[in-house]
């Protein structure tokens, strides 16, 4: 595994990366998306509450408003990123078999992207699809 193509020392190569092999990037992104989600989720709850009992046409009119659509899109994207990292941390804590862990982390990424894309597509269709 030791590469001799680099002048960097083994310590220099791994310093700051930690057990997740990606440094503190995930740690910080989880905090950033948490702050975003706290604000966006309050907006999301208000949107859902405002839609209770409304017929389809009225619900679409609300969801197609730019301020509502942008809030919902941001919530969906920030939420998907946040839940992907959170579930990856759980997988890394509890799944110790290397192959199973890689498969689970990958499946988790696919799920988060798929759900995020489905929500985003539906929101964009409501806004632009007529």
């Amino acid at each position: 595994m030791l590469s001799h193509s680099s002048m960097r020392t083994p310590l220099g190569r791994v310093r700051g990366l930690g057990s997740a092999k990606s440094g503190t990037g995930h740690f910080w992104l989880q905090r950033v998306t948490a702050v975003a989600n706290l604000v966006l989720a309050i907006g999301f709850l208000c949107v859902v509450l405002s839609l209770i009992g409304k017929p389809h046409a009225a619900a679409l009119a609300t969801l197609a408003k730019p301020q509502v659509a942008i809030l919902m899109l941001l919530f969906v994207v920030s939420g998907a990123v946040h839940m992907r990292i959170g579930m990856q941390v759980i997988i890394e804590d509890y799944v110790h078999h290397e192959v199973a862990k890689i498969v689970a982390v990958m499946a988790n990424t696919f799920f988060a992207i798929a759900v995020g894309a489905a929500c985003a597509f539906a929101l964009l269709k409501i806004s632009f699809g007529g």
Binding site: P55, H56, A57, A59, L60, L63, M72, V76, G79, A80, M83, G86, M87, I90, V115, A118, C119, F121, A122, L123, K125, I126, G129
Partner: peptide
Amino acid sequence: TGVALYGGTLLIALWLIAAASGP
């Protein structure tokens, strides 16, 4: 609760897809 919300996003997705699909 994080895991529950993870699964719960499917409900949000289904709701939005239903809204986008039609009345």
